[in-house]
Amino acid sequence: MRLKQFPIVILLSLFHFLSYSQPHTKLWNGKKCAVVLTYDDALNIHLDKVIPALNAFNFKGTFYLIGSSPAVTNRIPEWRKAAAQGHELGNHTLNHPCDGTLPGRDWVGNENDLTRYTVARAVNEIRINNAFLKAIDGKNERTFAYPCGDFTIHDTLYYNQLKNDFVGARGVASGFLPAKNVDLTNISAFIEDGTTAAQMIAQVEEAEKANSFIVFLFHGVGGEHPMNISLEEHQKLLEYLKKREKDIWVTTMVEVAKYIRQSQQ
């Protein structure tokens, strides 16, 4: 009797394992976790080095563009081509205003000091940048990234007036959350500055263990910005992600935000 029951016990155990473990390991578009590669401040090196590197692996990145940046206004056809290839052109405001009263913000000029803005001005400039970006890529859906991670103007959350303009907004606080707990007005991100590929890969593996996702926040990749990682380390990360493509969903911020929004309904 015991011998006859033994296979049944095994089959029941296997059934329960598959029933309960599978949803937790395939939560992200049928994969174990999601990775979003985001690049801030509209740098020439993003067009010259980063996008070709992503294209070589058939990966899509999110590039948060400052509308007034010469690297945008002087290279519109190249950004349009990048969008046509599937890369997201995100909104990083028209003039990148930051709170100049905070420590280490001596570089913030009066004209770009967020504390000198009104909420109406901030909202207007962001919407102007949205119109500009649509003129480049023709798209209505995109995400926003807070310059310097600053959320408020005189204690007012200015993004509250922009929730219907974007699919989501990327912040700067790191963390691994399940999709149902993600605040789409402040999507977590990991700032990379001088980081090695090994360190970034470890972060991806932590996201995978947590059944979560990770948003990488890059600025310079091989130079052009004080916050920088090397091209070589960036390349190694891409190579790792390509090898793990079966388990890792590498996509844009707008696609992950849409996926999270749908999962929360």
Results as ranks from 00 to 15, higher is better:
45 I>G: 01
49 K>M: 00
46 H>Q: 15
253 M>E: 09
244 R>A: 06
46 H>D: 08
72 V>Q: 03
195 T>L: 08
46 H>S: 06
159 Y>E: 03
208 E>A: 13
150 D>G: 05
264 Q>W: 04
94 L>M: 13
127 R>H: 03
102 L>P: 04
223 G>C: 11
94 L>C: 05
137 D>P: 14
76 I>G: 06
165 D>A: 13
110 N>K: 13
181 N>M: 11
131 A>H: 07
221 V>N: 02
8 I>S: 05
114 L>S: 08
200 M>D: 06
238 L>Q: 11
260 I>W: 12
220 G>Q: 04
263 S>H: 10
50 V>D: 05
81 K>S: 13
167 V>D: 02
178 P>F: 05
6 F>D: 05
207 A>I: 05
92 H>G: 00
214 I>T: 07
218 F>N: 11
197 A>R: 02
43 L>N: 03
211 N>S: 14
190 F>Y: 15
64 Y>C: 09
195 T>R: 07
53 A>K: 10
46 H>C: 00
39 Y>W: 13
103 P>N: 07
2 R>Y: 13
5 Q>F: 14
202 A>P: 07
27 L>Q: 15
70 P>C: 08
179 A>D: 02
35 V>I: 12
73 T>L: 11
173 A>E: 10
47 L>H: 00
207 A>T: 12
178 P>A: 05
135 A>V: 09
156 T>H: 06
24 H>N: 12
89 L>I: 09
50 V>P: 02
85 Q>W: 12
236 K>W: 01
113 D>A: 10
45 I>L: 09
126 I>Y: 01
88 E>G: 09
245 E>K: 15
28 W>R: 02
200 M>Y: 03
70 P>K: 05
143 T>F: 02
241 L>W: 13
205 E>K: 15
59 F>V: 04
123 V>Y: 02
229 I>Q: 09
62 T>N: 07
177 L>S: 12
165 D>Q: 11
141 E>D: 14
244 R>P: 00
77 P>I: 11
30 G>V: 12
54 L>Y: 14
5 Q>M: 14
167 V>G: 06
